[in-house]
């Protein structure tokens, strides 16, 4: 059961990464300098403020610990 839960979580993560890659340009246009939340291969929400996005997820009964949240910006980051 535990293995199934972890595989389900990682399967959802895979879908989220694929969705993010496919839709990155559109997100940059619609939500520059926003934190975006993606879950199970679907866009959930976006906000300029990270904490506000977490609150939104919780209000939608989603567990933030199981959601992909990425910051999208036209400024390319070099770490």
């Amino acid at each position: 059961m535990e293995t199934e839960n972890v595989l389900r979580l990682l399967g959802s993560a895979e879908k989220d990464a694929k969705w993010l890659d496919k839709n990155y340009s559109e997100l940059l246009t619609k939500y520059p300098d926003h934190f975006v939340a993606i879950h199970d291969g679907n866009f959930v929400d976006a906000s300029r403020k990270f904490e506000e996005l977490i609150s939104e997820l919780e209000s939608k009964k989603l567990n933030p610990a199981e959601v992909m949240i990425k910051f999208v910006s036209k400024i390319k980051r070099i770490l």
Partner: peptide
């Protein structure tokens, strides 16, 4: 993803009562 390499992991800790990704 957008030219960067991404890997997802499940993370857990009994000590911190943490489970997620």
């Amino acid at each position: 993803v957008a030219g960067q390499i991404l890997i997802s992991a499940s993370i857990r800790s009994a000590k911190y009562r943490m489970f997620g990704r």
